[in-house]
């Protein structure tokens, strides 16, 4: 069937929901075909593809949270993390690839937020795949111009005394936010501290959870 731009739309003209049980789409057929061709031609194997998906599924914001909790409890590690995010993360066993990872620290006066205005670059090696909203026009366009308003739409209202810095990522250079350690957590272990660190706290659209 020749391809046109309506193949993947429902009869009502809306995109199908991305559920696994939705009717087969043109682009899904293309994915199957490309995958099979790469296997037939010996470029990759079904096992390699499955292993890659497992590795991707294994990555989650819990990885970034461990890095943050280490920085909260180990000043020397924090200094190394702020100096070279990639190297310090590798110290903890995380595969950062060839990316340059830059850690930006929140302080009582500065709140940091990350975005990729050009596409969808994200610290996926520490946080997993980006949420849908991170890739939307609304977030990419507006967070650099009216960050305070965008953060409020996430439920994060910051006082005017806190300056907001927005960091625009590129394919080779990714940012991650080091949030401030919540008050009243002096007695918590590193593992318990990591449980307070949310994905959005490391993007900058949220704050860590308060101590229980």
């Amino acid at each position: 069937m020749p391809h046109d731009h309506t193949d993947h739309l429902s009869p009502s003209g809306h995109p199908f929901r991305p559920d696994n049980d939705a009717p087969l789409t043109y682009w899904q057929v293309m994915e199957i075909a490309i995958r099979e061709l790469l296997i037939v031609k010996g470029i990759t194997t079904a096992a390699d593809i499955a292993a890659q998906i497992d590795a991707m599924d294994a990555r989650s914001p819990a990885d970034g949270a461990k890095v943050v909790a280490r920085a909260w409890t180990d000043p020397a590690f924090k200094a190394r993390l702020l100096a070279n995010g990639s190297a310090a993360s590798r110290e903890m066993g995380f595969d950062i690839g060839s990316l340059r990872l830059i850690v930006v620290e929140n302080t009582p006066h500065i709140h940091n937020v990350i975005v990729c205005t050009l596409c969808s670059c994200y610290p996926r090696n520490l946080l997993g795949l980006p949420p849908d909203w991170y890739k939307t026009r609304a977030y990419r366009s507006r967070v650099v111009r009216e960050p305070r308003k965008v953060l409020a739409e996430f439920g994060l209202v910051l006082p005017d005394s806190i300056r907001i810095r927005v960091h625009d990522s590129t394919a080779d250079m990714r940012y991650i936010v080091l949030p401030a350690r919540p008050a009243g957590t002096e007695e918590l272990s590193e593992a318990d501290l990591a449980d307070l660190v949310t994905r959005d706290a490391m993007i900058g659209t949220g704050l860590p959870k308060a101590a229980a």
Binding site: R137, A138, S141, E153
Partner: peptide, 15 residues
């Protein structure tokens, strides 16, 4: 694709 700073609608936090 260079959309930083342009006007856009409200955020949809759905994932």
């Amino acid at each position: 694709h260079d959309m930083g700073g342009l006007d856009a609608g409200p955020l949809d936090p759905a994932e």
